[in-house]
Amino acid sequence: MAKVRGAVVVDTEVCKGCELCVESCPEGVLALHLEVNSRGYHYSYMKNPEACIGCANCGVVCPDTCITVYRVKL
């Protein structure tokens, strides 16, 4: 059982759906949403929020800096 829990907040309007965060996530937390934002991009979201460990890989690789990452120790 993980000793940490994380959460990411995606600024969905800024997201361009490049999917690099999805690729970078070691826990398979993220996916592109079926919905699109106002500019027509499928934005990233937490599909499996419970799996997030707050490693911030998604934020680090995001070219549009639209991901904020939080983490708590349990």
Binding site: V9, G54, V69, Y70
Partner: peptide, 9 residues
């Protein structure tokens, strides 16, 4: 979890 004090990135 999403609280300022828990911000890591």
């Amino acid at each position: 979890i999403v609280k300022p004090e828990n911000l890591v990135y």
